[in-house]
Structure formats: C-alpha cells, structure tokens
Design a protein around this nucleic acid. Structure first.
Length: 599
RNA sequence: GCGCCCGUAGCUCAGAUGGACAGAGCAUCACGCUCCGGACGUGAAGGCCGUAGGUUCGAGUCCUAUCGGGCGCGCCA
C-alpha cells in the first residue's frame, strides 16, 4: 500500500537510498536499486545487466563505466550542493553490479544519533493520517477459543501494533459471531439439557457441551434441526424467553473471551456483534436489489460474481438472503463493512485477519464492495490452518487444544526451565517471568513464520525455548539489562544525557566487527517495520529482531563492555547495549511479547 | 470436476516486488568460561529448491504441464 508513496526519509538507510537514486546520472537509466548482500560491505547495489544489454555491452564493463561516471558525479559541486551531508562514500563495480558504499563512520554516527534523538520512538514513523480497520479474533460465541483463534488474535494484534508504529491510525475490531441458526441449536439444547448453575459458572464449557450434544443427538434424530430453526426464528421475532437466554449466552461468553485474550496482552478497541447488523443487512439487501447490484435467484438473494476469464460465466455468488427471508452471514458482514467505512471515515483499508479457508468469502465480499463503490478497500490477511497430529481440529468431536490450556502449559514449562537455570529466583518472581517467557514463546512460534503456511500443532515447537525463539530474544535483552544495571552510576548518567559531542567520540571507538554488525542490525530495524507493515507480515519484524539478538550474542562473547580498555570504549559499548536493549524490547512489544528484567 | 494455497538440508522454517556463492533454528559431531549470566558463542557435516518443459543476459522466485498435501466451491458461519 505504501508503494510509490513519497515521504521524506526519516531513517538513515532510506536516506542513502534516496540519495543514490536521485543522482542525476541514474535518472532515465533503467537501474533498479536493491539491498547489497550482507558480507559485501556495500549498503545498496544497482544490477547493471539489463542496462548493459540495452546498450550492447558486457555487464562487467558497463558497471565499471558507471562506477567511474557515478563517482565523478558524486564529487561534483552540483551534487555537493544538493546533498551537503552526503552519506555515500563511493561506487564500486563488481561482477556486473554497481555497489553503493556508505561513509561508514558517518553511517554509524547517524544510526547512533537516530537512536539518541528518537529514544523509545526509534523505529516509529510520523502520522500518515490514514485509518486502517483491523478485524481479528472474531470468535463464535458458544465455542471456546481454540488454537485456531490464537492465530487470528496474535497475528492481528501484532499487525495492529506494527501498523501503528508505521504511522497508521488503527481501529481493532473483535467481531463476535452471536447470530445465526446455530443459536437456535443452543437455545433448543439449553431448554432440553441445560443447567442454570453451570451456565453461570463455566459458560463457555457448558455451551460447548450443549453444542456437541445437540449434534450427537441430531445425528440420530434429524428432526432436531427443525426444532433449532424454529427456536432461532422465535429469537429473530423477539421472543422474550429466547432473547433473555441468548443475551446471557452473549454476555458471559464475551467476558470469558476477554479474560483469555488478556493473557496474550490483547485488548480490543471495539467489540462488535453480528446480531447488531441484522436490521441493517435487511435494509442493505433492499437497497442493493433496487440498485440492481443484487438479484433474486432460486428464491434467495445473491450478488452475482462474473468469471474474470469468460464472459457470461458466473462463479459462486455472494449469498445475502435465504429463501425463507432470513439474512446470511455474508449480508451481515457486508453491512458491517459499510458501517466500518462510515464510522471511521475516511478509511484507507479494511483488513480481515481470518483463515485461508474463507478466501472465497472475502474475495466475493471485496467484489461486492467494489460494485458498491469501494474498490481495493478490503484486504483479506489470510493465514494457514492449524491441525492436530491426530487430524483436523473439530469442536464437535472434541478434537481441540484450548487456548487457556496451551498458555497454562507454556507457563509451566517455562517455570521448570527457570528453576533449573536460575534456582535462586524467588517463587513469585519466577511465576511472573514464566508467564512472559512461556506466553512469549507461544506467540513467537506463530509470528516467526510466514502466516500463510498451515501449522501442525506441536507442543515441542510451540514451546521452543532456544534457537530462533522468543526466549532467545528475551535472553539477549536481559543480558543487556544486566550490563546496564552493573554499570557505574556516572556512566549511566552520561548515557541518559548524551551530548552531541559524545557521538563522534563513540563512533571512533566502534571498531570490532561484532560492534559494527550490532550497530548495523540496529540500523535495519526501522526498515523492517516498514516492510512488515507493507506486507502485513509480522515475521519480517521477527526475523530482524532475531538477527539483532544474534548480533548481540556475538558481541557479548567477543567484546567486553564494563571491562573495556578505555573509558571512551566503555561508554560507546554501553551506548550500543542500551540501544539494543531498547530496540529488542520495543520490537518484541510490537509482536505482543513482553520482556522480563531477568529470567 | 473446477478454483485457491503450500511443496527449499533428517525435522521446522527464512529467502516479497526475477539478480552476486540457496540461509537460519532443531537434531548430530568437534570445540570454547582466570573475563559483564552457557536459555550463549565458534566450527564441521547436511541441498539436482517435488518433477519435466518454457520465458530471460539471469529462475527457489515468472509461465505451462505433472505429482504430492491442504482448503474451498448457493440457502452454515
């Protein structure tokens, strides 16, 4: 969505890129800039193959010629006037690539400077004045949160945080499924087998029991389905008894959901209910019929979807209203989408963090919105299915892992490890740390990989505590914190109130490859936020943080901080450690993961 | 039957918009604390990127077939 957006660069790497791209000689040439590979020493590169071909020369020769020309331009008075604080040192040709080298010390100084100036805001971007509405979690009442909803919730929350850091105004909506024929089933089931006391004490478990029992009995006796439909009809028509009971299902469920989700650090901006769009859906259907967007078909109301390939061929339509006159989920979803557009006007995007299995529904919803006048507004941020080693998750058949159980187990395993690694930690502190580490591990296990892939649920993997895992990142942050705690008060004061003059002195001290690599890893953080936001891909941020933690671990073993040879070196390294600590914490927080002080 | 998604090291995964030798973690083997916490670091081994064609100066990435797995396909949500 940000592609082509012109913004003044806020961070150093973007600035270098802009400078390289705006050299007079690149204008008009078919040169695309890209990041240079890691060990090359360059920051950016222009591949010259295509251009070389167009002028009929070898890429190697072309790159060499361009390097010569670019270097001349770089040293010209014109360029120096346009970029008085130029950050590009030189261009070098290598194997058909034109590599852009930054002035290393200036680059390092700028990163340190950005870190100092922005403090905790480092990596964040200014307000874009654009609003994005994110639909996530969105469970069905009467079903407990299973590990499937875990994905929507943690991906959604991470995206919300990342988009906000990128400067978007975000409204997060939890859209509760509290309407539809299934509530007829529950109403009927409660009348038959319900237990008042259980409903008050354990609403979700009880509703699930009723749901499962209904389906079991309905298998033997299909007539129950009719009873359920009748019960739902009474609810729709405002039957007092049904209304009251349904209201109780709703309230107790929402309360339970919010409690569970709070354990993941998630709090919804808005709780919307599907049932509240029933009336609007009816009105909308009439309006769309009148406009000719919707039409009747076999007694139902649909929005026809033409095939993009063949004229006259129709694909599965978006079904709005059943032949019995009741609205369908699609209609309520469409009405709610329009409500979002109105309530939060102007809206840039409506994002739905929902599993891939609903791809068709959202593709059709997007086409419907397009016909109503909102093209390109809906974005289905899909993710793969979670299955269990024993097979597909099935609430009806009791094949589920509940979110609460998973989080309990995560905490327990983390506690065992803390007991082993850090036996002196007092018990109450241990419980608190175990919560952050265990739940962090669960969140990271999901967010560290591309969301599109299916996941087979695996305790081992969910609760990985070493290697590329949340605890590894948290551990790196904890090591930083420990160094800072042990630093002399005088040093800490200098770090708190740095002077501009400190920075050149620090840069002069940053010489070891581990230190430079660490600082460069810090420099890449802002770009990771941009890319993660553009692609709706939290794993881009996760992998940037992993690289940073790995750089810190190498730095930690190779470069002494408190026992540095000189005062100046110690201060410079302390500044690196402090910045790393902050960035790791912030990055993890964006993913929805807390960092303990010790572990 | 049609449509969408996935297939990269023994296992779990990065490699978006085609580009410089395909990278991590786990597991395996070998190393490393007189020094800020070893939930760590260093190294080794491990790959015809499912298969076959094609486009391109260049393909893990794009196209076409094909195999394997997942999901979906009008009155559920």
């Amino acid at each position: 969505m940000n592609q082509g957006m012109i913004e003044s660069p806020r961070y150093i790497l973007d600035e270098i890129r802009m400078e390289a791209e705006s050299l007079p000689c690149t204008r008009g040439l078919p040169l695309k800039i890209q990041s240079a590979p890691k060990g090359s020493g360059a920051v950016y590169a222009f591949p010259c193959f295509q251009y070389a071909k167009s002028i009929g020369k070898s890429p190697i020769e072309t790159a060499e010629e361009l390097a010569k020309e670019f270097n001349e331009k770089l040293n010209s008075d014109l360029h120096k006037k346009e970029f008085p604080h130029s950050l590009i040192d030189r261009f070098e040709a290598l194997k058909g690539y034109l590599n852009v080298f930054a002035k290393e010390k200036a680059l390092l100084a700028r990163i340190l400077n950005d870190l100092k100036d922005y403090g905790d805001e480092y990596g964040s971007y200014p307000d874009t004045h654009q609003t994005i509405v994110v639909d996530y979690c969105s469970p069905n009442i009467a079903k407990p949160l299973s590990v499937g909803h875990l994905r929507s919730t943690i991906i959604g929350q991470a995206l919300i945080n990342i988009l906000r850091a990128r400067g978007y105004r975000v409204e997060g909506i939890n859209f509760m499924g509290d309407w539809g024929t299934q509530f007829g089933k529950l109403l009927y089931a409660f009348e038959q087998w319900g237990n008042e006391k259980k409903l008050a004490e354990e609403p979700i478990r009880h509703l699930l029991e009723l749901y499962v029992r209904f389906h079991k009995e309905a298998k033997e006796n299909p007539a129950l389905e009719d009873d359920a439909r009748a019960a739902f009809k009474r609810l729709q028509q405002g039957g007092e008894k049904e209304r009251a009971l349904w209201q109780r299902f709703r309230e107790s469920s929402l309360e339970a959901f919010e409690k569970t989700v709070a354990r993941l650090g998630v709090k919804f901006d808005h709780n919307w209910f599907e049932s509240e769009f029933e009336e609007r859906a009816h009105d909308l259907i009439e309006e769309l019929l009148a406009k000719g967007v919707a039409e009747e078909s076999k007694g139902a109301v649909i929005i026809p979807i033409p095939s993009p390939l063949e004229a006259g061929v129709w694909e599965t339509p978006l079904l709005l209203r059943k032949s019995d006159g009741t609205t369908l989920y699609s209609a309520r979803d469409l009405a709610s989408a329009l409500a979002r557009i109105e309530d939060f006007e102007p809206v840039e995007k409506l994002i739905y963090v929902v599993g891939s299995e609903q791809a068709l529904h959202f593709a059709n919803l997007a086409k419907a919105l397009e016909r109503i006048g909102y093209p390109d507004i809906l974005e289905h941020v899909r993710f793969g299915m979670v299955s269990l080693p024993t097979g597909k998750i099935s609430t009806r058949e009791g094949r589920v892992v509940y979110l609460d159980d998973l989080l309990d187990e995560a905490k327990k395993r983390a506690e065992d490890i803390i007991k082993e690694k850090n036996p002196d930690m007092p018990e109450d502190a241990r419980a608190e740390v175990a919560k952050k580490v265990g739940i962090g591990a669960v969140i990271y296990a999901d967010l560290s990989q591309d969301r599109i892939k299916d996941i087979t649920f695996d305790w081992q993997k969910m609760l990985a505590f070493d290697g590329n895992s949340a605890p590894y990142l948290q551990y790196a942050a904890v090591r930083c914190a420990k160094i800072l705690v042990k630093a002399e008060p005088g040093d800490r004061k200098r770090l708190e109130k740095p002077k501009d003059a400190d920075i050149p002195r620090m840069v002069a001290e940053i010489e070891e490859p581990e230190s430079i690599e660490l600082l460069m890893a810090l420099g890449r953080f802002p770009q990771a936020i941009t890319e993660a936001a553009q692609r709706y891909a939290p794993h881009v941020l996760a992998s940037c943080l992993y690289d940073l933690a790995a750089a810190l671990s190498r730095f930690y073993t190779e470069v002494p901080v408190l026992k540095a040879e000189t005062d100046a070196a110690r201060l410079a390294r302390l500044a690196l450690v402090r910045a790393t600590s902050r960035v790791l914490r912030k990055g993890l927080a964006l993913l929805g993961i807390e960092t303990p002080e010790e572990m």
